Deep mutational scan, measured.
Amino acid sequence: AEKTGIVNVSSSLNVREGASTSSKVIGSLSGNTKVTIVGEEGAFYKIEYKGSHSYVAKEYIKDIKDE
């Protein structure tokens, strides 16, 4: 089941290729951006990003809701 969340950062949140802080950064999301969460892996959520799937750190996503 998909969930949505809100990016909870003051500046921007790195979007990564994989579920690791050493993964390549492929983009960023600004605070209060709504994201669609399709899964989770460790400390990361797998999200829909620009037509494919990428990862963001869970600690920076708030207001998780089931869609």
Rank of each mutant, 00 (worst) to 15 (best):
E2Y: 15
E2H: 15
E2G: 15
E2I: 15
K3T: 07
K3E: 03
K3C: 12
T4K: 08
T4I: 12
T4Y: 14
T4H: 10
T4N: 07
T4W: 13
T4E: 07
T4L: 09
G5H: 04
G5N: 03
G5W: 07
G5S: 03
I6M: 08
I6G: 04
I6Q: 05
I6S: 05
I6F: 09
I6N: 04
I6K: 06
I6L: 08
V7I: 08
V7P: 03
V7K: 02
V7F: 03
V7A: 05
N8G: 08
N8F: 10
N8C: 15
N8H: 11
N8D: 10
V9E: 06
V9A: 10
V9N: 07
V9R: 08
V9Y: 07
S10L: 12
S10M: 12
S11Q: 10
S11L: 10
S11R: 11
S11F: 10
S11T: 14
S11V: 13
S12G: 12
S12C: 15
L13H: 02
L13N: 03
L13D: 02
L13C: 15
N14G: 08
V15D: 01
V15S: 01
R16N: 07
R16L: 15
R16A: 03
R16V: 07
R16Y: 15
R16P: 01
E17H: 06
E17V: 08
E17G: 06
E17M: 09
E17R: 07
E17D: 13
E17K: 07
G18W: 11
G18H: 14
A19C: 06
A19K: 03
A19H: 04
A19R: 03
A19F: 05
A19Y: 04
S20L: 06
S20A: 07
S20D: 09
T21E: 14
T21D: 13
T21S: 12
T21M: 15
T21Q: 11
T21H: 15
S22H: 11
S22N: 11
S22W: 07
S22T: 13
S23W: 03
S23I: 02
K24R: 13
K24F: 06
K24A: 10
K24G: 05
K24T: 07
K24M: 08
V25G: 02
V25M: 05
V25Q: 04
V25N: 03
V25L: 06
I26F: 03
I26E: 02
I26Q: 04
I26G: 01
G27I: 03
G27L: 02
G27E: 02
S28D: 06
L29Y: 02
L29G: 00
S30V: 12
S30E: 13
S30G: 09
S30T: 12
G31V: 11
N32T: 06
N32S: 09
T33A: 09
T33H: 06
T33L: 06
K34N: 05
K34V: 13
K34D: 03
V35P: 01
V35R: 00
T36A: 07
T36E: 04
I37T: 00
I37Q: 00
I37V: 05
I37M: 02
I37H: 00
V38R: 05
V38Q: 03
V38G: 01
V38I: 13
V38D: 01
G39K: 03
G39T: 03
G39W: 03
G39V: 01
E40T: 07
E40C: 09
E40L: 06
E40I: 07
E41A: 08
E41K: 07
E41N: 07
E41T: 08
E41Q: 08
E41C: 13
G42V: 03
G42A: 05
G42E: 05
G42M: 04
G42D: 06
G42Q: 04
A43Y: 07
F44N: 02
F44L: 01
F44S: 03
F44I: 00
Y45V: 03
Y45P: 01
Y45H: 02
Y45S: 00
Y45F: 09
K46C: 10
K46Q: 07
K46Y: 06
K46I: 15
K46L: 11
I47T: 01
I47E: 00
E48V: 15
E48K: 14
Y49G: 00
Y49C: 03
Y49D: 02
Y49P: 00
Y49A: 00
Y49E: 01
K50C: 12
K50V: 05
K50L: 11
K50T: 04
G51N: 07
G51P: 01
G51Q: 06
S52K: 13
S52H: 10
H53S: 05
H53A: 06
H53R: 05
S54E: 03
S54N: 06
S54V: 14
S54L: 07
S54M: 12
Y55F: 11
Y55V: 00
Y55I: 00
Y55L: 01
Y55E: 00
V56G: 01
V56R: 00
V56I: 08
V56Y: 01
A57N: 08
A57M: 12
K58E: 00
K58G: 02
E59W: 08
E59I: 13
E59A: 12
E59H: 09
E59P: 04
E59N: 08
Y60I: 03
Y60N: 07
I61Y: 02
I61G: 01
I61R: 01
I61Q: 01
I61N: 01
I61L: 06
I61F: 05
K62I: 15
K62D: 14
D63A: 11
D63C: 14
D63W: 12
D63Q: 13
D63E: 14
D63F: 15
I64C: 09
I64R: 05
I64S: 07
I64L: 10
I64K: 06
K65Y: 11
K65Q: 11
K65F: 10
D66C: 14
D66N: 12
D66V: 14
E67M: 13
E67T: 13
